[in-house]
Amino acid sequence: MEAVVVQNMTKTYGKEKTLAVDNISFSVAKGELFGLIGPDGAGKTSIFRILTTLLLADSGTASVDGFDVVKDFKSIRNTVGYMPVKFSLYQDLTIEENLSFFATVFGTTIEANYDLIKDIYVQIEPFKKRRAGKLSGGMKQKLALCCALIHKPTTLFLDEPTTGVDPVSRKEFWEMLRRLKEQNITIIVSTPYMDEASLCDRIALMQGGKILSIDTPDDIVKAYREKLYAIKANEMYPLLKVLENYPGTLNSYAFGEYAHATFKDQMKNMEEFERFLAEKQLTGVEIKSIEATIEDSFIKLLH
């Protein structure tokens, strides 16, 4: 069964009709962990707001748990959980007060759905008398997730929950999401971090209001047909310059300690390339063929 269905959704803003979401269609299956991956301005937040009934689309239809986002907005508001971008809770209320307030607003109690948040809540429970404003970024995030889960939503919308969060807290957050998935909650999450994409069941790579590609992370990577090489040298910036100037290069860019590059004719003439590098006086050169990552796929789609 489909938890979320979006058909030909378009959203523009203001008098100039700035296009935020451009004729998008996709669907998310029940219990799926679905990722909208893309930079700022890709249209992720607009999609979230339309699906959570906070905004009306210009055209197209969408439904959540079978409810229409326009007609049945009340039913949707009863069943979904939502964590907006930049969400900051009530800074002057304690952990406990925040949680019990949101529980009451959603017509439930902490006790009633405790089993759902238990895993996460026990980590912050020792500080339950502390005000939200005095919590660390990671703890705030856990509390926000608890608040969004307290009424046992069928579908959970998380808009950039990890933006600006350090890699360690990000990792922990994704572990929590994996565990939640086991509770059969559909989770739709957006992120600008490409490395988080592989943790989703399925992803949509987005840019400029459009979906560039939508599939499982594995299949997106498999769709990368060119042979990809990782090249390393002791001097990174000169290496990038050299790759750019090599006539056989299709595309080259930095990627961590390596540079990634694709070549014309799938690089049949490796010796010639190695000679070219040697002439440029690069040291410690290392070349290897590698599997593409989501980020490589995204870069290719943008070109």
Binding site: P39, A42, P192, I299, L302
Partner: peptide, 10 residues
């Protein structure tokens, strides 16, 4: 570079 796409980031 927070929130910037991978190509622009490079």
């Amino acid at each position: 570079t927070g929130g910037v796409d991978p190509v622009t980031r490079r």
